[in-house]
Design a protein around this nucleic acid. Structure first.
Lengths: 192, 192, 192, 192
DNA sequence: CATGAATGAGAGTTCATTCAT
DNA sequence: GATGAATGAACTCTCATTCAT
């Protein structure tokens, strides 16, 4: 695939992401995408055979941006955790809508077939990262936690819950802040 | 609507629930329901005009079963909380699939229009119930918690996260147990 | 068919007429009629098998009222003609809509099959009646007309044209009056 | 829309006209049209969204042919009028059926919504044209008429009546001829 | 007789997908 | 490669008609 082709593919994915943001996964049709990116009907099929492939391309692009672990060398684990949670806060409150529901729809639909879902990997990696962070925090006596593994999972589940709730019944910035403070509190830390 | 009519309606909702369980909300067509309950095409429309109405009927029936608050008079708040979480565990691990994703799809689709979503009420009531429980637990010195309100919300978000994760990348019974233990732990309680 | 049956049938026809007035012939469904007369679905079928039969019943009832020839014994032909035209004026301007379009739809649909349309008879009789009237008027020297037969037809066609126009692009009372005056004028009469 | 597209659209309208001729307006379904032009179900929707749009396209095409005013420079008003009436005679007697009933159905159905019906314009223009013709005829002493305006309207109503009657109970060529002669007679002219 | 639930045929409409240009 | 017209499968919804009660 040439450079120009790649550019075009990227433009399609860009437009598609918008559409998935607005409408979730299942409600999106190839027609929607075609209209959103001003490409020809047949043209789209040259690059993507169906909305599944398109959504996977969107997810891939997404992960490249999102997965950047919080890295500030001179920060202590507590500060890094807080930075991560603040990043997640933005994700949760994104006005345009985040992809949560769409991802759930996608995963629900492809539950049976794919066993090694990238989402699973993403989940596991996030848990591992947080667990390490908490373990470090405990070791350096910034945090108090008997089970860093469970605490890490709990954070991820809470964030998932927040994301989904934000997309459905809504969540205020204040609520997210309180939850972040609560999470920090359970780890024995206080936000100044 | 006569008694028999009501019975039929119930039978339809029963069949519809199965279909929503299997396929979520958005992917379900009236045709699916028709086939699932062995009724005629037109017959279904006699009772429900579209999948939205059908899904709402399913939710209503669901709420009647689910909303039964945990009530054991001689149990202390900690025990009641544990009972509630065990109930939720069953919900999370339901083999047939629970309605979480379907509900999210439904809410996502109807986000703008309905302001007084029953789901919102359900959310608020659950939080209130848990908050009361925790406040009682603290007052009776069974629990330790500085902010019962945030703790209650945190539980709800965690459970939401678990439900959704269960329906997508999967969650083991052990994981749920650990999370329950963790939650109890953050409230200063230990499961024997 | 008992007396009660007949009453019911009449009530149905009454309701049906309203429906045909509002919607013409072709757009009317059995369901419309059922809803309009608050009878049961099956009940309607006991009396009428389809909208055609219903419409014919309406027409029959209509003809009984409408066909009453203008009869005022001590009036001269010119006065009788004017009375007839005034009667037709009411028909043309009926606010609720008259049956013209419905009748055309009905006749158009049943053009091929029925050869001895009651409408044809009605048309012929009306022409005959007017022709006689004009012939009398000429004989008694109230009117001037070389061809009473053509004049009679012309009146009927004009009235048909007015009825149809009234139901589509609309016709004012003034226009109808002018046309009546014009018709009388062509017969050498002047409306005082 | 390309040239080819336009050609296809025209072919559809052509086929649709046949269908409307045969069946009127209300009885026609998109399926009928699809079958009549050997196009695919979805293909038709590429060009027309419903029978209303289709019918309007037919009318438009029709008007382009029909509206050609009778123009013979060296003819006197009486001759021109006669030419016009002869043209109308053809329209009235068209064996395939003319569109009268269909137009009435269409107008009846869209009575309330559209205020500036093209049909109204057509009506007004025709009246104006005839009125001018008669006024000229009177001025040049070919005709005798006290109220050209009413005479013009009368002609239009009579022709409408004839068209409709032709489509329902039927009208013979002789009848149309007689009516034309009668109309000319009322204007003081005699057909040789 | 009367009811109205139930059926199924058929109309309207949308889209994924193909293919000639 | 790129286009967009064309196809047909699939879905929604409405009604005429029947039939058990």
């Amino acid at each position: 695939m040439g450079d120009k082709s790649l550019q075009k593919k990227n433009r399609i994915v860009e437009a598609a992401r918008e559409v998935f943001y607005q409408n979730g996964y299942r409600a999106v049709t190839m027609k929607d995408i075609v209209e959103a990116c001003g490409i020809s009907r047949g043209g789209l099929y040259l690059y993507f055979a169906n909305t599944k492939e398109l959504f996977e391309a969107v997810l891939e692009q997404e992960n490249q941006t999102v997965l950047k672990a919080p890295a500030a060398k001179d920060a202590n684990p507590g500060e890094i955790l807080l930075m991560y949670l603040d990043e997640q806060k933005k994700e949760i409150l994104k006005k345009k809508g985040n992809l949560s529901i769409a991802i759930y729809e996608y995963m629900f639909e492809n539950k049976l077939s794919d066993n090694d879902l990238p989402a699973k990997k993403h989940f596991v990696e996030t848990v591992k990262m947080l667990e390490q962070l908490i373990a470090d925090g405990v070791a350096q006596e910034w945090m108090v936690c008997e089970s860093p593994s469970e605490a890490a999972r709990n954070i991820v589940y809470t964030l998932e819950g927040l994301k989904v709730t934000a997309q459905t019944i809504g969540v205020s910035a204040k609520t997210v802040d309180s939850q972040i403070a609560y999470i920090m509190g359970t780890l024995g830390m206080v936000i100044k």
